[in-house]
């Protein structure tokens, strides 16, 4: 027991802290672009002309059908053949953005469709351009409705960030794996890593609940199951 505590304090805490920071870096770099991609795909799907809409639909179907790990392998191992070599970090972030964007777009699309189409017509009749009406009338409402779904996806992203380890980017899981193989204390190390992930996921869900409450417009609260 004493030995375990000394092991945790001396050998484990430093690398795990670095690993946690590396994981956070991955997540923080992916989330904003994933949301942006989701918005672009969703508006392209709903409002785009035929080819744009088809392109967005196909992209979402392809990315959702491919395991994220294979997407990461394609980005990391295949792109160099086309002259684009990415570091493990950028390859993972690109993969996370592509995957997260595709899933987000589904929620945002649903949210856009749930805004009454009369509002768009009313905004147009007030002299707004189509783009203006979408950006300042439809999107603020759709974003609020899509938030619960997107926050789920971001929590998935926290967990999927562990896949960057397979592209040899040393984040939390990778750092733990290295120590565990050196010390043979697999159960202890991975239990602690699991706890760190649980803490990250719990904090993320608290932040999103707070954000949802903060952004709620009185009288327009989404019904939560």
């Amino acid at each position: 027991m004493d030995d375990s505590i000394r092991f945790i304090m001396e050998d484990l805490s430093g690398p795990l802290l670095q690993g946690t920071l590396a994981s956070l870096k991955l997540i923080v770099c992916s989330v904003p672009f994933g949301l942006a991609l989701g918005f672009m795909l969703a508006s392209g799907w709903v409002y785009g002309n035929k080819p744009v809409s088809w392109l967005c639909r196909t992209y979402v179907a392809l990315v959702k059908g491919t395991p994220l790990l294979i997407l990461l392998f394609i980005i990391y191992f295949c792109l160099p053949s086309f002259g684009l070599t990415l570091s493990p970090f950028f390859a993972s972030v690109l993969g996370f953005i592509m995957c997260n964007g595709a899933y987000n777009s589904e929620y945002i699309r649903g949210a856009i469709l749930s805004v009454r189409s009369g509002q768009l017509i009313a905004a147009r009749s007030l002299g707004m351009s189509r783009a203006q009406a979408i950006i300042s009338i439809v999107m603020p409402q759709a974003a609020r409705r899509a938030l619960p779904g997107c926050s789920n996806e971001i929590i998935y992203l926290v967990k999927y960030s562990s896949l960057a380890y397979i592209l040899s980017y040393i984040e939390l899981t990778g750092a733990g794996k290295m120590i565990a193989t050196r010390s043979f204390r697999f159960t202890l190390v991975f239990s602690i890593i699991g706890l760190v992930y649980l803490v990250m996921v719990t904090i993320a869900s608290i932040i999103f609940m707070w954000l949802e409450k903060k952004l709620a417009v009185p009288g327009f609260e989404a019904k939560r199951q």
């Binding site: 967990k159 991975f190 719990t202």
Partner: peptide, 23 residues
Amino acid sequence: VWFLRGLPSLVLLFLFYYGLFPL
């Protein structure tokens, strides 16, 4: 439910494969 939904599958795999089952 909280435990299994909050952990990445990769960590769960390592935990079971290298940790719990051998233990």
